[in-house]
Nucleic acid binder design. Structure first.
Lengths: 107, 107
DNA sequence: ACTATACGTAAGCAATACCTTACCTGTCAA
DNA sequence: TTGACAGGTAAGGTATTGCTTACGTATAGT
């Protein structure tokens, strides 16, 4: 069983543009919810709910600093995505080789 | 504007395990719908509907051989996914460097 | 011409996703 | 202690997804 064991599906988590944008923002370091929500037109509770999805997918972790909830990026589960996509690189290469062979044979 | 211009979102398309499995199957070459559907417990129309999503995301192309509809893998749009995920590799590397520095300084 | 095969699409339905408002707890500051 | 701030969660509505069955169209075989 891959990274997303607890219950969240990484592929589902990153399917939402909002959640991808949240992750992108978190690349600059831990950010409190207030600052995260500031970048979106949706309500703060909506952001909290997106963060929940990311948390269940283990893509972010939460820590408490006073009354602020800092969210921190945890890119680990993205390796599953990367691994899956990478499987298609070979397919591309094979196709390119096939094309080259075709061109060669037609020469 | 990325690969998925026509209307389909690649990230959404690959969020479904069924659709990922369909793509995986297509790596072995063009396959008619009948053979694709054989690998799943859902109905054939359901598979057709998943294929529609993949088609809108430009992840597959369709060709007609007699009464068979051959589906062919087009991994191009996956580059968008790959590109996005790759952005997080640097994050990982930075974190590892930071960890090494921390370990070094504590030595 | 008739029948079977291959497949898309429409209609209908249950489940889920996503948003909002309202409310709650916990923390800081005066 | 009282009020403001930070943020999770519940409730409820609407939109979308994902499936099924039923049906329509095109091709292949007899």
């Amino acid at each position: 069983m891959p990274h997303d064991a607890p219950g969240g599906d990484v592929f589902v988590a990153i399917a939402s543009p909002v959640r991808r944008a949240l992750l992108d923002t978190l690349r600059q370091g831990p950010v409190p919810v207030r600052d995260l929500a500031a970048g979106f037109s949706i309500s703060r509770p909506a952001v909290s709910q997106h963060l929940r999805v990311l948390r269940l997918a283990d893509l972010v972790s939460e820590s408490w600093v006073g009354r602020e909830h800092q969210y921190r990026l945890n890119p680990g589960p993205l390796q599953d995505v990367r691994a899956w996509v990478t499987g298609y690189e070979q397919f591309w290469k094979d196709r390119l080789v096939g094309l080259r062979d075709l061109l060669d044979s037609g020469r």
